[in-house]
C-alpha cells in the first residue's frame, strides 16, 4: 500500500512539474528562436559564396523525461503507436541544441551556419535499458 502511494505521489509530481517545465521550455524556445532568426542555417556541405571567415560552433543538451511521461510511454509500448511524450522530449532537445549552436554563432558575429549536423544519442543508459535521458548535439561551421 505504502509503495503504491509513493508511486502515485511520484506520478503526480511528474505530471505537474513535468508539464510546467515543458510549457516554460517551449515558451523560451519560441522566444529565443525569434531573436536568433537572422542567423540562417543549412546542411549544405559546399562553402557558400561571399563569406570571409569561418568558425566551428557547437551546442549540446542532455534532457530527461519526467516520471509521468515515462510511465505513459511504457504503457504505450504495450499497444504500439506514436509515443507523444518522447516526441515532444526529443523535439525540445533538438531545438535547444540548435539554439545553443546559433547563440555561439552570434557571439562570433556570424550570419550563417553551414553544414549543420545533428546527433542524437541516449547517454548513460541505466541498467534496465530504458531511455531515461538523451543527448542532442548540433554542430556546424559559422560563416561571416
Amino acid at each position: 500500500m505504502g509503495g503504491f502511494l509513493v508511486f502515485l505521489f511520484l506520478l503526480g509530481l511528474g505530471f505537474f512539474f513535468g508539464r510546467m517545465n515543458e510549457r516554460k521550455h517551449f515558451a523560451s524556445l519560441h522566444q529565443r528562436e525569434e531573436d536568433l532568426s537572422h542567423i540562417t542555417i543549412s546542411t549544405v556541405k559546399k562553402l557558400p559564396e561571399g563569406y570571409v571567415s569561418s568558425a566551428f560552433v557547437t551546442g549540446n543538451v542532455v534532457i530527461s523525461i519526467d516520471y509521468f511521461k515515462r510511465i505513459a510511454a511504457a504503457l504505450r509500448t504495450l499497444v504500439g503507436g506514436r509515443i507523444g511524450s518522447y516526441t515532444t522530449l526529443i523535439e525540445r532537445a533538438r531545438r535547444e541544441a540548435i539554439l545553443r549552436m546559433k547563440e555561439q554563432a552570434q557571439e562570433n558575429g556570424a550570419s550563417h551556419v553551414a553544414n549543420v549536423r545533428i546527433e542524437t544519442s541516449s547517454v548513460f543508459q541505466n541498467a534496465s535499458q530504458q531511455l531515461g535521458s538523451l543527448e542532442v548535439y548540433a554542430y556546424g561551421t559559422a560563416l561571416k
Binding site: L10, L13, G14, G18, S64, I65, D66, K69, S133, Y137
Partner: peptide, 30 residues
C-alpha cells in the same frame, strides 16, 4: 558519470528537464 551528479539526475528524472551536470560533462569531454 559521477555518483553525485547521478543522484541529482535521479531527482530530475522525476520532474523532467535538462540535466545540466551531464550537459557540462559531455561538453568537457568533447
Amino acid at each position: 558519470k559521477h555518483v553525485g551528479r547521478d543522484i541529482m539526475a535521479g531527482l530530475k528524472n522525476i520532474v523532467g528537464g535538462e540535466l545540466r551536470g551531464y550537459t557540462e560533462l559531455l561538453t568537457d569531454s568533447r
